[in-house]
Nucleic acid binder design. Sequence first.
DNA 1: CTTATGACCTGATAGC
DNA 2: TGCTATCAGGTCATAA
Length: 284
Amino acid sequence: MRRGLGAVLGARVVGVRVRRRDVLVVPGDPMGGWSRQGAERPRPRRYTGSMLLDGHELVETARRGKRMALIGRSADGERRAIEIGLGMTGWVRILPARAHTPDHAHVIWKLGDGRRIAFVDARRFGGVWAWDTEDDLRAHWEATLGPDALTVTGPTLRVRLARASRPVKAALLDQRVVAGVGNIYADEACFRAGILPQAIASELLSDRVARLAGSLRAILRDSIREGGSTLRDFRDAEGAPGGYQHGHLVYGRGGEPCSACGRALEQGTVAQRTSVWCASCQTG
DNA sequence: CTTATGACCTGATAGC
DNA sequence: TGCTATCAGGTCATAA
């Protein structure tokens, strides 16, 4: 999705419309984060268009784990950033001029060339963060997200799992440990590495952790090449579904024969999430 | 400090 | 056809 967003680089933002304020977090809002839940959430701060890159030229895209950003440069050279998290159903769509506005388009950036960028999210688990500067965003990522799973190395992952007394799948899903792994790819990576998702992370020997890191890199690389996994909602910036769901070896296949040994895949709950594994090919 | 749990939302689907 | 229950790709505050 980030790569698709590259198509707007060089364009100028000529207007921003926030149709649902509760997906938006601006500087000064509590937590700088996802504190939109709960009965007594503090009143959100006011925002201005320029906080959302109005009038800025779009100069760069960025990503770390599941977080994506658009960097804008103002007339006086200041670089601001908009961070986007997709949650489960969110997406960012580039709308051609005069295209119909999709349902649940909560924030819309109007571009000088007539196109629009829409943050769309039916379930609203995703959000949009406005950062005063690009540096603020980078610092936030550095503080809250582990190394990106697409490039994580065995030694790095080993250090980060060494102190985790929880199931390895729970650690993989923790974005501070490694950024970018969700429920699908956690199961796929454990399967390809021959590791049970419920194995205690700190007990894995280093060669197995190295294999897990390699599995993560390979799976994410392959999935990106296929445009991601579309179970139902996911689309890229142009609206096209991904194709990697056909490459899943375990996710969504509980009860089906294991692709490696033929034994029926087990399905259960690990780390409070539906999980699928092969009891023969994967060990603790 | 680390880990587990419930809550946050909407929409698709299955079963009656 | 229409109702209800269940489930889903994520992350947070709070409890333990």
